[in-house]
Simulated scan of single mutants.
Amino acid sequence: MTASLLLDEMFPHTLADTLRDKGHDVTAVLAMVELVGRDDATVLDAARAAGRCLVTENVRDFALLARYTRHAGILFVAARRWPKTRAALPRLANALHETVAAGRLPGPDDRRWLT
């Protein structure tokens, strides 16, 4: 099973590369010049327009936006549980892969936590 994901700006492009190697349609904000440094509403709107579930650690801002803005789904990632260190990135990539493969991504206008 594949999914369309947009990794928020805090995630390295190498995570997107790893997930693409696992067969998923993934892009990172850092790879999209038009989104780098843009406000959260713009990022969420771009994800919705592309039909991509947004993966982010920015719970405070995106949880609020999600209450008032339509979106293609938001998957929240707890930074403490899923650090972005070089050694820990494979574990995060595997967790995202397993979430997609099990069909546990949030759907339109839904939010979930990566477990």
Rank of each mutant, 00 (worst) to 15 (best):
A49Q: 12
L75T: 12
R81H: 11
A93F: 00
L114T: 07
A79G: 04
R81T: 15
T2W: 00
E98T: 04
L15K: 11
R111M: 15
K22C: 05
K22L: 14
G103L: 03
V55A: 04
D25L: 12
R38S: 15
L114E: 08
P108K: 04
R111C: 15
F11E: 02
R48S: 13
L75F: 02
R48I: 04
T42G: 05
A95L: 11
V100G: 04
T27L: 09
L5K: 06
V33E: 15
T85L: 12
D109T: 08
L7A: 08
V55T: 12
V77L: 09
F11W: 03
A3I: 03
D109E: 09
M10E: 11
A63Y: 01
G37L: 10
E9H: 08
N94E: 15
A72Q: 03
D110S: 09
L114F: 09
P90Q: 03
D109I: 04
L5D: 03
R86Y: 07
V100H: 05
A78E: 14
K84N: 15
G37K: 07
T18G: 14
V36Y: 00
L96C: 11
R112P: 01
T14V: 12
V29G: 10
L65A: 14
L6G: 09
A78L: 07
T2R: 14
T18V: 06
S4F: 02
R111I: 15
R112F: 05
E9G: 03
D110I: 01
A47N: 07
H13Y: 01
F62I: 07
L96E: 06
V36N: 00
D8Q: 05
A101V: 11
A95Y: 02
G107Y: 01
R86D: 13
D25G: 09
L92I: 10
A50N: 08
D21A: 13
V59R: 15
L44R: 06
R48P: 03
F11C: 02
W113L: 03
L65I: 13
P106L: 05
A88Q: 05
R80I: 04
V55E: 05
A79F: 00
L35P: 11
L75W: 01
V26P: 05
L15C: 10
L5F: 00
M1V: 10
V77P: 02
D21M: 07
L30A: 06
D45K: 08
A49K: 14
R80C: 02
T69C: 04
A95T: 05
T27H: 08
D110Y: 01
A47C: 13
R48N: 08
A66Q: 02
P106F: 02
T42I: 14
G37Q: 05
I74H: 04
H13L: 13
V59Q: 15
L5N: 12
A78S: 12
D39S: 14
L89T: 07
T115Y: 00
H71I: 01
D17I: 10
R80T: 12
P12R: 06
L44G: 11
A16T: 06
D39W: 03
D109Y: 04
E57A: 14
A31C: 08
L65Q: 11
F76A: 01
L65D: 12
L105D: 01
A72H: 05
L15G: 06
F11I: 07
T27M: 09
M32D: 06
M32H: 13
R20W: 01
T18M: 13
K84F: 00
F62R: 10
R86T: 14
R80K: 09
